[in-house]
């Protein structure tokens, strides 16, 4: 649907972005975005979703509203985001200034056989976010654009919606912990300290 070629490597993109996270809280959408984030280096302030498809961005909303002084970054895939299109409207209306969503868009359902997704047929997720009223939407096709993205995602007033177009080259499987109770207990302890036990 476009003349541009997606050449970016998804693992490289996620690593570059997370290098600038400081104390940001990260939620990952199920599938490849979770593996990408794990591959960039484990962190107790990562919450890895292995299910709940369509819920990553709006889970970020709840976290951002509960922690208004912390930056929240949701990293997810185009298929996961497509399942939660209504959340683009919900987040726009709630308008959290500390929330950013980065969609790693390979235009495919990577976990189920690389079937073409809606973005591969021209659906513009960022355009939908803009139409819903997100404060800023942006798209990256090049390394330069990715390098410019980190300060936007972590510093600019949100809600911010960033699409990163990536290639479809196979990447090694890197799986984080999959015991949800362990992931959430670790996350809450790192974020809330003693209050995590309340």
């Amino acid at each position: 649907m476009t003349d541009k070629q997606a050449t970016l490597d998804r693992r490289d993109v996620v690593s570059r972005i997370l290098a600038g996270r400081e104390d940001a809280l990260v939620i990952t959408g199920l599938g490849s975005a979770t593996w990408d984030t794990a591959a960039a280096g484990d962190n107790p302030l990562n919450f890895y979703l292995w299910g709940g498809m369509g819920g990553a961005a709006v889970m970020g909303l709840g976290l951002a509203l509960a922690q208004p002084d912390r930056r929240v970054l949701v990293i997810t895939g185009d298929g996961e985001m497509m399942m939660g299109l209504g959340t683009l409207a919900t987040i726009a209306v709630a308008a959290p200034s500390n929330l950013a969503v980065m969609v790693i868009d390979n235009e495919r359902y990577g976990e189920t056989g690389m079937q073409e997704g809606h973005t591969g047929a021209g659906v513009d997720l960022g355009g939908m976010a803009a139409a819903a009223g997100w404060r800023k939407t942006t798209i990256a096709w090049t390394e330069e654009e990715v390098n410019a993205l980190a300060p936007i995602l972590f510093k600019e007033p949100g809600p911010i919606f960033a699409t990163v177009k990536v290639n479809r080259d196979p990447v090694p499987l890197v799986l984080p912990a999959r015991d949800g109770t362990a992931i959430r207990a670790r996350f809450r302890a790192a974020l809330l300290g003693e209050k995590a036990a309340e």
């Binding site: 709940g52 819920g55 970020g60 909303l61 709840g62 509203l65 922690q67 939660g84 974020l191 209050k195």
Partner: peptide
């Protein structure tokens, strides 16, 4: 959306 949102809220305390 509310199920996922409130899971995030609770993660945040």
């Amino acid at each position: 959306e509310g199920v996922a949102m409130l899971a995030g809220s609770w993660l945040g305390g």
